[in-house]
Nucleic acid binder design. Structure first.
Lengths: 223, 223
DNA sequence: ACCATAACTGACTCACTGGTCAGTTATCGC
DNA sequence: GCGATAACTGACCAGTGAGTCAGTTATGGT
């Protein structure tokens, strides 16, 4: 983006205060990692994109890994925060709350495109995968908590433990949302509302029935 | 697994016919890649696991990438084949067919644990990601085709093109299934049938309603 | 028995990249 | 002005890993 040529008035090229430079590096890093993933992106490439030397990056971050992980944590947190606060902002539970949460999620994907890509695309090595799984776990847990409020205690066949069913349900929901988000990422022309609607269409009815105590049973599938 | 020590009777240690050795290398490669992903797994490690020298691998495969991609293609194909034939083996459509497809999918995950992990875990670099996306595309397309048979022409809000809604629906389904499969991968004590039931529970009711022409509408979410 | 061939290997090259360090220079408080 | 300090860099190191090659040896067909 910003070519660091001294064209821009010639002032303020080098010697930024640490905090600012740090920010620029962070920006460059999101771009770079979103584009290529962790392993494919060399620190040199990040440095080039930020218009600084690789060595400078080490003055701001202890290692490539920490830089990446920091980014991850930040955005995992932001996504989580958005979904949670969106869902909590409505009084009612159930459908309305789910809708709010989904909207918060999709909003994040819409507005923080690079961040989303970085989160979802390449999970890099096991170290990072762990951070990434935390996103999944936390979001799923949150969804689960919301769902738990209004679900009967036995949505799982054969009376398995309660949280069990909720856990799996929320993971499926998250999986479905993620799938749509990724699809959407290459079809941005589809309006946001429609994306939300498609998610609700697929997910809500199932959850609603489950909440009402209706259960799918294998017997139904044999006639 | 097979330590190549000449302990086993001492016979037939080295000098296998090419086809057999190739198979052993392939097996070792699945294990290795499933465990660590593409980038984290060195060819040397694969070689060690197969009990041969790295150089020999190059007598069977042109590059690490080709080896990996070959594996991917093979299992993508197998998964696809399983799901398709399972779904096609039932006469009826709708729920029964979905059930069969899901069962086929979960069966694959169950029986080909390593292959599943290799497919899902680390998508490696863009080259591989492309192959991987094909899996998603193809499975989604297949599911979509099955769904299309019995869905009304307008499950998408605002009358967007037909395949559009089916495409997204099938992706959500696939996303949900994948999420459950990954969850299950660390909880193998849960019986297979229960996993299938949980998927049906979440997905079917939504699809069923959609098939019946019921649509979720944003209006519902405002009261 | 023997040799042509195919299986197989050790030891190498080469490129890349994370990380370091000694040194250079802008900048800011005085 | 002028040092002290903080921003910044080029050049380097060390580890790693893909891919190669010249050569060794088992094996099966005659």
């Amino acid at each position: 983006m910003a070519t660091i040529e001294p064209s821009r008035a010639g002032i303020a090229r080098r010697r930024l205060p640490a905090a600012e430079r740090r920010e620029l590096i962070l920006d460059a890093a999101i771009d770079a990692f979103a584009e290529g993933g962790y392993h494919e992106t060399s620190l040199e490439a990040v440095a080039a994109r930020a218009g600084v030397s690789k060595a400078l990056i080490y003055e701001h971050f202890p290692s490539k890994m920490e830089l990446y992980r920091g980014l991850l944590e930040t955005y995992v947190h932001e996504l989580l925060e958005r979904v949670t606060s969106a869902a909590m902002s409505v009084e009612e539970g159930g459908e309305v709350r789910l809708l709010a949460g989904v909207e918060g999620f999709i909003e994040f994907v819409d507005e923080r495109r690079d961040a989303w890509r970085m989160l979802i695309r390449h999970r890099a090595d096991d170290d990072v995968a762990e951070s990434f799984e935390r996103l999944y776990d936390e979001v799923a847990a949150m969804i689960g908590a919301l769902m738990a409020e209004e679900m009967p205690a036995s949505i799982l066949p054969d009376g398995a433990p309660f949280e069990f069913g909720v856990e799996v349900m929320s993971r499926q929901l998250l999986g479905a949302i993620t799938a749509v988000a990724n699809w959407w990422d290459e079809r941005r022309e589809v309006p946001r509302d429609q994306v939300v609607a498609m998610i609700m269409e697929f997910s809500w009815v199932g959850l609603e029935r489950a909440a009402a105590g209706e259960r799918w049973s294998p017997d139904r599938g044999s006639g």
